[in-house]
Computed example of a mutant assay.
Amino acid sequence: MTEQLPHEKGFHISWDQIHRDSRALAWRLDKKGPGEDGSWRAIVAITRGGMAPAMIIARELDVRTVDTISVKSYDWQMQSRAQVLKHPSPEVMGNEGEGVLIIDDLVDTGKTLELVRQMYPKAHFATVYAKPHGRPMVETFITEVSQDTWIFFPWDMALQYVRPYRGD
């Protein structure tokens, strides 16, 4: 048996799909915030993958305060120890993140969200996609994929020629 190539156990996400799934996540989060009307105080995107979904969710939920937290947990496609490179504004985060939506594209092992959750335990954590090992770290998500599936996001892709399966 030959080893599978990355694209053979891959889940390819188009720009249209990430937009639809991010809107679905917004609808799931609508009126679930701690505000009197169910609103959220702010959105914090985990860079870089959470930026596109956070922008879409902020628009859909009419949240105008958006910040970022930069967490590095991958070197190329190898997972490493998660470390915070940039923190969100203390004014935005307030009381341990209460009323703040923290958005990422994917929870994989959960190490990134675990680190951020320790810093902001009262925030609400939402991702567009979730893998089983990381699911306990996220309150809201749209689609679950298997742990051994590699998700190909549109910002990581380029159109290029691919040889036919049976050769030229």
Rank of each mutant, 00 (worst) to 15 (best):
G35S: 09
T140W: 07
D21A: 11
K72L: 13
S14H: 05
Q77K: 15
P136N: 05
P90I: 07
K32L: 07
I57M: 09
M157H: 02
L101Q: 06
M157A: 09
E139H: 05
R64Q: 13
D75G: 07
E139S: 07
W27I: 02
L61S: 08
D62T: 07
R23L: 08
E91C: 11
D67I: 05
L25Y: 03
T68Y: 01
M51I: 15
W150L: 13
R59L: 13
P164D: 10
K32Q: 12
M51Q: 14
A45S: 14
V116S: 06
E144V: 04
D37W: 06
T2M: 15
W27F: 09
A82D: 09
R59C: 12
P164M: 10
M157W: 13
E8Q: 13
R23S: 08
W155F: 11
I13S: 01
L5D: 11
I151C: 04
Y74S: 05
L85S: 13
H19F: 15
R81K: 12
I69W: 01
A45T: 14
L106R: 09
L5T: 09
I103K: 10
V44Q: 10
F125R: 01
Q83T: 09
H87K: 06
V66T: 08
I43Q: 11
V145P: 05
Q147K: 10
D168C: 12
D21P: 07
E96H: 08
E98S: 10
M157K: 07
S146E: 08
E98P: 01
T140F: 08
W155Q: 06
H87Y: 12
W40Q: 02
M93G: 04
I103F: 04
G50H: 08
P88N: 08
A126F: 04
Q17G: 05
L5Y: 04
M93N: 02
R59N: 14
D104F: 02
A45G: 13
P136R: 09
Q17H: 04
L25G: 00
T109L: 04
V92I: 06
H12E: 10
P34Y: 13
G110R: 03
D21G: 11
E96W: 03
V145C: 00
Q17M: 04
D168V: 11
W15V: 14
T140M: 06
T143C: 08
M55S: 15
G35P: 00
E139T: 05
F153Y: 06
F141W: 10
I57D: 02
S22I: 03
W155S: 11
M78H: 15
R135Y: 14
L113I: 13
T112M: 03
T68P: 03
H133T: 09
T65M: 15
E3I: 12
F141T: 07
E8M: 12
E144M: 05
R166A: 12
E8P: 09
G49T: 05
A82L: 03
I151E: 01
A126T: 01
A54Q: 03
W27A: 11
T2H: 15
V107W: 15
E3S: 15
D108K: 00
D168Y: 14
A58N: 06
S22L: 07
F152A: 06
